[in-house]
Amino acid sequence: MSLDKADVVKIAHLARIAIDEEMIPEYTNNLSGILELVEQMNAVDTDAVAPMAHPLDMVQRLREDQVSEENQRDKFQEISPKVENGLFLVPQVIE
């Protein structure tokens, strides 16, 4: 399947990635090439095949609902781009 520029702009928005205008043709080409490779999957009929989500048949492990981690907020905030009074700062969201 071949994508056009509008598709790439839409996918980039879905993925929240800014792509420079002049790079869009290159992305369009490369992504179309990858999807062409991927489409080789269609050569095989898989109607009767059960999907495999995970290599090992295993069930989700459950545990008691207990606090197992200690609070390390200060340590985690040391590596943040912008914090104030223990809060992570982002541009104003609500006008």
């Binding site: 980039a12 879905l14 993925a15 990635i17 800014a18 999807l35 982002v90």
Partner: peptide, 23 residues
């Protein structure tokens, strides 16, 4: 903030794969 941080922080191959996956 999301779009430019990700657009500037990731290299081309990573962006390509994220876009293929998102699609």
């Amino acid at each position: 903030l999301y779009k430019r941080s990700r657009g500037e922080g990731f290299g081309d191959e990573v962006k390509r794969r994220i876009l293929v996956g998102a699609y």
